[in-house]
Design a protein around this nucleic acid. Structure first.
Lengths: 193, 193, 193, 193
DNA sequence: CATGAATGAGCCTTCATTCAT
DNA sequence: AATGAATGAAGGCTCATTCAT
């Protein structure tokens, strides 16, 4: 199953690299493999062996976040109220987008570097579809909105929040506000209250 | 009034440069002054004389579009129905954003290279504020939405549309659809129909 | 005699250019003809017409100072004490070198751009020779020292003072101190007192 | 101890670069890293890796000479006659300045690129101070002259020699002559003989 | 005479990627 | 596996000088 069990030290290196990369992403520094290598105290070659491209590394960085999001989505499936389920999922999604800089490039990219990424994106799409379908079935959502639209719109909301706030402290609040505004619309003819 | 009347040949070169830059922007190529110079058949120095930085050139490219948008906004002020006025203005705005790649970086940039850009951005902000205030006064808009939010949200919508459609042919339609969805929300408790 | 009487406005321009160049020299900015033109509010061409090279302009800037130095030298010729005469002349020379940044490049240059510069450098050389010869004839100076040495040594002293002091306020004092040290040596076996 | 042992081929390249740079310095060509790379038959990046700035490279070029000078200085400390000790050290210093074009910029620079340079400059300063103090204690030197003055004056002497002689063959002789003249003065009221 | 637009060689620097050790 | 030196294309920018207007 797992491609190659990976020697213990190699695994340690891999983790180290991802950790450094995560730190860089968080501080807004562009991911450069040379840079990562230097900070990790490893040779460039080592980094390239583990992550042949910057995209690969970025996806590795994003993976835990995508997994957490998936978990939230699965959680949401258990929520009986279809509107609350969808809503909660979308809130978690924009929060993630706005909080974690690795997410939006990975989400937007038309092709993935890691199979795991494809899996997770697929899972999220599928969860979105399910949640959306339920809400639509309950007449709570405009019929023309698709799951793909949901993805794009969450990216858009996150982007809008970033455009709005220089101050990263406000980001989540702004994103929430924008999403709530949008939702009233998604909710369409059936006003929430 | 006009800073320097500019010699005829210089003016021709300037136009040529802007035209090339516009073409590059339209085909999605990043603006590089050396590149522009080569394609224009001009010396690098000439390009640098007219446009000391890539931002300056980009703003010059964006200017006509910003002017057109401003004109539309002023047109909208004459519309008696405050909701229709706002709505129309926002539609024009997302259309522009989605159609013209020079717009979003210029809109988002915290500082401007050309005074003319500052003027136009200021004018648009002011128009947005007026249109928004009228609609708000008529109780047609959620009170917590500001003019700055409008700007960010239009950027977000445009971004979402781009994320959604690889095919540029669908861009405007998608952006429209997303905006209409958002508007239902902006409209809030007073449903459109 | 004078090459071409020069129209009144042309003369005004010339003066303006020299004045700007002097200011640049004084603030330590390297002389660039484009830069001079811009600051003078003139076209580059105008500056190039008057001063075909930066050296030409620099010499024009240095000329008044060289003239003043020459005047001092001629004054020194009237001093009866040959040692005092030489000494005074050398003090004036290092002061000038250290005070006026246009001087050392012009002094050092093997070829001159302006005939006037050649004239003045020649006059100074000749004054130096006379003053030195008198002192030497009085047995007050080491016989192996030549007038050319005097020039080089004054440049050296000025250079040394500049190396020593970041603070331009100390420059003259330092240069004086260094010169006095050197002079005790020039005075050789016949101590000054 | 040694920061990083450096691979054999890398060391060869480094030496090659320094050698080329030395040749350029000797022929009076300004040090340009691209140029060095081309002449060394190496990629620019290689040169930049070893020497991030031209100053770094220049200091690397100057290092052996500074070391030799330091060695001479330490040698001079063993000389019993304090005047001869100082004198010899200063002669070696001007010889070096006049012979090796890398020296004067490095000496004059207020900040160093390599720690080794700082060390060596510090060592030379300290040697100069010691030698000067001894001579001063013996009443052989004007009291107001400091070690810093010595440095500046040696630079000045070297500069003067260069101003004097186009012909590099005379440089050392001229510098010697100028230094001897200066020394008679440093010796001051206590004539050497 | 004056103007100032145009030129373009030339220098600097970065960075993704390869490959010998 | 790991290393990190080497590569060199690519892009950025300046400035001395010319020449059409």
């Amino acid at each position: 199953m797992t491609p190659t069990p990976l020697r213990k030290d190699a695994a340690r290196n891999r983790e180290r690299i991802v950790a450094i990369a995560r730190a860089l992403v968080d501080e807004g520094t562009p991911l450069q493999l040379n840079d990562v290598a230097r900070r990790a105290g490893l040779g460039v070659g080592t980094v390239y062996r583990h992550f042949p491209t910057a995209e690969t590394l970025l996806e590795a960085v994003a993976t835990p976040c995508l997994e957490a999001l998936t978990a939230h989505g699965e959680q949401a499936l258990t929520e009986p109220d279809p509107w609350r389920a969808l809503e909660t999922f979308l809130y978690r999604t924009v929060e993630a987008q706005v909080t974690d800089a690795s997410l939006s490039p990975v989400t937007v990219a038309p092709t993935d570097a890691l199979p795991r990424t494809t899996e997770l994106k697929e899972a999220l799409r599928s969860l979105g579809t399910t949640l959306l379908d339920r809400a639509r079935a309950a007449g709570l959502v405009r019929p023309e909105v698709s799951a793909a639209d949901l993805t794009s719109l969450m990216c858009g909301i996150a982007y809008a929040a970033q455009v709005h706030s220089r101050d990263p402290g406000d980001l989540v609040a702004t994103a929430h506000r924008y999403l709530s505004t949008l939702l009233e619309g998604l909710n369409g003819k059936a006003p929430k209250a």
